[in-house]
């Protein structure tokens, strides 16, 4: 900033500099400076808030990292900022050798991916119907879909658990036990259903904003309504689709309640990642360093996903508008 283009507040500050010297304390002087130049106050508040949020979100990771680097025997010596004892990154290897932690992660990853694909597909169809078509009973139907997501997931657990533990003859050729217990289906079927309403709601808002002319144009050019949905409406709603997809993926990947109760906790029976983390807690000993290492490793896929989709998500969560 130079010369005359200064902020009016700055100019005001310079203009009033010739005021008589007052005998002020440090705090008083600082407050006076802030008042005469609010820009400084805004900037200071901004940094303060940013640092606060960064510390509260990142410090647990840092500390987790320190715990993971601490050898088992020194766990009680972990400080606030320093690892206890000699740094030992061995925990990051041990988690895969002590337990097949990669299998737990794979289970969660696969279940989350399948659930996301199912949710996005079904929610796209539903979002199209609710967002773009007008028909009798639309609001009542939409409300009943949304109501599903108001119930605590636990409310569904008992009936679902009984259902999935029932031996169904028809499933016998497909599933060895004839029931859904200990299969990935038992996890992603209820989870997809639970997180569907939110995605329907997000996608509905986005799809309703795509001009009708574009859909008409696509249909005249040679697709069906469904074709127009996936060739034109979905690509143009990319921020919304990315938002719904990432939200679903993260929730399902981190889900514990259904995932742990619908399997017996063994990796080969599709136990999820969180189950794996808790497996480092034995009967006589809790391997905090391995749990910490496992937690950090488990976060990586989600972190990568978010970084990749970040741009879209930001515009999806904030603006939500499609031009034209």
């Amino acid at each position: 900033m130079s010369g005359k283009e200064q902020h009016p507040d700055l100019e005001a500050q310079q203009a009033t500099q010739e005021e008589p010297e007052l005998d002020r304390g440090i705090v008083e002087a600082w407050a006076a400076r802030m008042i005469s130049n609010p820009d400084r106050a805004y900037k200071a508040t901004f940094y303060l808030a940013t640092i606060f949020f960064l510390v509260t979100t990142l410090f647990p990771f840092y500390w987790l990292f320190m715990v993971a680097l601490t050898p088992r025997g020194d766990l009680s010596n972990v400080g606030v900022l320093t690892p206890g004892g000699a740094i030992n990154p061995g925990a990051f290897v041990d988690i895969f050798t002590t337990l097949p932690f990669h299998r737990y992660m794979f289970n969660s990853f696969l279940i989350a991916t399948v659930a996301t694909v199912i949710v996005l597909f079904v929610a796209s169809l539903a979002g199209y119907v609710f967002g773009r078509l007008r028909f009798r009973g639309r609001n009542a139907l939409l409300l009943s879909v949304l109501v599903t997501s108001f119930f605590p997931p636990a409310a569904f657990f008992v009936p679902l658990n009984r259902l999935f533990n029932t031996n169904i003859g028809a499933l016998r050729p497909l599933l060895s036990a004839g029931s859904l217990y200990n299969t990935p289906y038992a996890i992603f079927v209820p989870l997809s259903a639970l997180y569907l309403p939110l995605s329907i709601f997000i996608l509905m808002t986005f799809y309703s904003q795509i001009p009708e002319g574009l859909e008409d144009a696509a249909r005249v050019e040679g697709t069906t309504r469904l074709g127009a949905l996936f060739r034109v409406i979905v690509p143009l709603s990319a921020p919304g689709v990315a938002t719904a997809g990432v939200l679903t993926f993260i929730t399902v990947y981190n889900e514990y309640f259904f995932s742990s109760l619908m399997t017996d906790g063994r990796p080969e029976n599709w136990a999820p990642m969180l189950e794996g983390v808790l497996r480092f807690q034995g009967e006589f000993e809790v391997l905090f360093n391995l749990m910490a290492a496992a937690s950090i490793v488990a976060v990586l896929p989600v972190a990568i996903l978010v970084i990749v989709a970040q741009e879209k998500i930001v515009s999806g969560l904030t603006a939500g508008a499609v031009k034209e």
Partner: peptide, 17 residues
């Protein structure tokens, strides 16, 4: 519409953005 052998120009132009 796709099976009618027609094409159409729209008021709002409706190019795929």
């Amino acid at each position: 519409p796709k099976d009618r052998g027609i094409s159409m120009v729209f008021q709002n132009i409706a190019l795929f953005p």
